[in-house]
């Protein structure tokens, strides 16, 4: 058994210790916002925050997360990046957007006023196949502006 905090709530997983965090989130906790893209830590679709740092959930065994705090896209519901992604219509299929939102939230937490090149650098590991990139970049810029203006960020 592994106890961890997920989106502010203490949860206990009964999955075997080597189970990837992604399977625990989706299969055991019913948090389906974290998407399965490759299972090989190559696409970023399953990005979550672990104690505030971005990590791909497919590559983290649940047993390593005892006492840690995990934030998923569901935990970003009130975060400025979600509203900004919708405002910029920054998705086509939307499958990559959970990971994009998490990556952007991590960036904005450490750099509230990133330039476009810094945003692109931070999002570079995150794959999008539909070509929503320009809109996603604009959404991160918008979120930064909104949060600086005391908007919906945190």
């Amino acid at each position: 058994m592994t106890s961890l905090t997920v989106n502010g709530t203490v949860r206990t997983s009964v999955s075997p210790p080597a189970t990837p965090l992604l399977d625990v989130l989706r299969g055991e906790f019913g948090l389906t916002g974290t998407r399965f893209g490759c299972g090989e830590e190559q696409c970023g679709a399953c990005l979550v925050l672990i104690d505030g740092a971005p990590a791909q959930a497919c590559g983290r065994e649940i047993a390593t997360l005892e006492g840690r705090a995990v934030t998923t896209v569901e935990g970003l519901a009130g975060h400025g990046i979600i509203a900004a992604l919708i405002a910029e219509q920054a998705g086509q299929c939307g499958y990559c957007l959970s990971g994009m939102a998490v990556a952007a939230a991590a960036l904005l937490a450490r750099n509230p006023t990133p330039g476009r090149a810094e945003i692109a650098q931070a999002l570079d590991p995150q794959l999008c196949r539909c070509g929503a990139h320009p809109r996603i970049l604009r959404a991160v810029e918008r979120a930064a502006r909104d949060m600086a203006a005391g908007g919906t960020g945190r």
Binding site: L31, T32, G33, T34, R35, F36, T72, V73, E74, A77, I82, L85, I86, Q89, G91, G94, Y95, L97, S98, A101
Partner: peptide
């Protein structure tokens, strides 16, 4: 888009 909010709320795919 009608479908984006649900997808960003963690639902919406056959997956």
């Amino acid at each position: 888009r009608r479908d984006l909010p649900e997808k960003l709320a963690g639902r919406g795919f056959v997956h």
